[in-house]
Design a protein around this nucleic acid. Structure first.
Lengths: 227, 227
DNA sequence: AAAATAGTGTCTCTGAGACATTATTAA
DNA sequence: TTAATAATGTCTCAGAGACACTATTTT
């Protein structure tokens, strides 16, 4: 241990979560009003310190933040990237381990004074480098939706293939070929039909309801040659 | 600030680098003999603390580690993932921001008592969770080689197309179709021929030498539909 | 000339998208 | 019966790989 290390201040470490959901076919992010300085009262990403006395790893910290500060459990969660530097936080040199979370909108708590669900295209100015973190999350989600089952985590437990295709199209921002989409879903062996369960949504043929196979509840399925 | 936060020990933060190179068509990782406890004298990934008084971000810390501890500069460097938990380091709850680095073998310093270049299939037992970090790096490199120009960072400044194809094949562990490979390289618009420069390697037609276009010296080129 | 590898032309087959047709419901 | 959407069959076209042929060097 040399002197320069002894005298160096360690960085501040925290986790931040970009919690995304789909409301009326538009991607929304969940923001919390900050309770404490810096930026008290400002809308920001849910985040917090690692509790070294209770968290099994940083992902557990992120799950705890979602549970304690947003009031949700069971969201799909994956590590996004780690943001760092002397300027991103006024308290000093800091490290933020960023996570991306997906949840069907039905499982979100009601909005109230300190929680807000906002279209990602209409986010207010965010403190720290939270805007960059959100952008990284959006890029990741859109990219992974091109070749994986990621978007199923924005659907409820049961959904129809037309609904799922709509979710993919909303994320990707472009229409998809119905036949190809179904072929790919088939190849991924991701879904199982719920026997006898149909979704009657109007004056037309009802659609088969599907659920994600248990094996893929936590893992993603990949399409070998993309979407 | 509540009491439980005040009393919680913050995690230890460091950066670790998986520095990969290609020796005789086999991927090798660079290991350093640890100078200090814990695991003093044991071969491990290059790593170190963030110097908050001089590093612009964690990636700069990783570049500094490569410069100061391995003696190299200019390697391709990208963030891999962040590893964390109470058990990975005997000193306590820790966070390691892991980076993946690629360098042509010619630019590595000579091996000596405290630096070693070892085939990734023949690594010794590594301390901390360094084995998992290496595995993550290998998965990342192999995956990105399927659809990007990542492997060019393992070639020197000038190289032939057959040499580059060989590098891809070594990383991916499978032969590639020559015509398709060249079509893809062409589509990526990644390379420029060095006028008049040929590589005469034996009793056969010499090969055109290429270099990476300046625009892609730091950025990756992507093949829209993969390799 | 022969051997060896570089580089290119072209055919074939796979697979993704376009289009069309059938199925099933409510009004 | 009509309108609306679900679900599927099938044709077409693009792109990746296989193969073959030409080009250029050393021995």
């Amino acid at each position: 241990m040399n002197q320069s290390h002894e005298s160096r201040t360690p960085p501040i470490v925290s986790v931040d979560v970009v919690l995304l959901t789909l409301v009326e076919q538009v991607l929304h992010a969940v923001l919390l009003r900050r309770a404490q300085a810096p930026f008290a009262g400002v809308w920001a990403l849910p985040g917090g310190y690692i509790h070294t006395n209770e968290d099994a790893d940083a992902q557990a910290s992120a799950a705890r933040v979602l549970r304690e500060k947003v009031g949700i459990a069971g969201a799909y969660l994956e590590q996004l990237a780690t943001f760092s530097g002397p300027a991103r936080d006024p308290r000093g040199w800091s490290v933020a381990i960023a996570y991306c979370a997906l949840l069907p909108v039905q499982q979100l708590p009601a909005e109230h004074a300190d929680i807000s669900v906002i279209p990602v295209t209409a986010l207010p100015q965010l403190p720290f480098d939270h805007r960059a973190i959100v952008d990284a999350a959006l890029e990741r989600v859109r990219n992974k939706s091109l070749y994986s089952s990621l978007p199923v985590h924005l659907c409820g437990e049961r959904f129809t293939l037309p609904q799922l295709q709509q979710v993919y199209e909303s994320i990707l921002g472009e229409p998809l070929n119905k036949v190809s989409f179904r072929r790919k879903m088939d190849e991924m062996e991701l879904l199982q039909a719920v026997p006898g369960a149909m979704h009657s949504g109007g004056a037309h043929r009802p659609a088969q309801l599907y659920r994600v196979k248990p094996a893929f509840r936590q893992t993603l399925a990949l399409a070998p040659r993309g979407l």
